[in-house]
Amino acid sequence: MNIFRLAGDMTHLFSVLVLLLKIHTIKSCAGVSLKTQELYALVFAARYLDIFTNYISLYNTVMKLIFLGSSFSIVWYMRYHKIVRRSYDKDQDTFRHYFLILPCLLLALLINEKFTFKEVMWTFSLYLEAVAILPQLVLLQRTRNIDNLTGQYVFLLGAYRALYILNWVYRYFTEPHFVHWITWVSGLVQTLLYADFFYYYFQSWKNNQKLHLPA
């Protein structure tokens, strides 16, 4: 494991912690897209099918459990928690996330490294993760006052993706036969989706203003 990969995993972990902190202590999920959170829960469920059959390291298993547990509990909080669900901007969060799932599944059936159930599901999770942030970005654009925690959550998620790309560059030069087109292309697409957000995030940070995305 290299430093980029570790830093990427840690930013990912922090992003989840920031979101849980907001939901758990402030009891609010204002500005958070349930659609995106449901997609992430599906992403992790599809990707970590091998959690008990393919042991890599204790670190990997524990992290997988954390991502699975946190994504499903966030969805639960937003849907069913008596107080939290009241702050959910249902009328603003209108992205048709089901329309993302089917194309990703079809693409995974067509383009994969091996046509087995686990491999197709794994590829599906990569494609779906690439676009899972879209409902959240649309919701951010519609939110007048993006609170700091929500802004930081999306920023940390974007940073995690950028660090993973550095990790692949590093692995490409240090490990033999490290060529994984499917992972790289979907990862690159995913990171590019954050470009616009990053621009406005740094602008607001530089000018010391509240984050606001133009429609």
Partner: peptide
Amino acid sequence: PLEQQIHDEL
């Protein structure tokens, strides 16, 4: 092995 290489990521 090669197959494990990419599946060792999260």
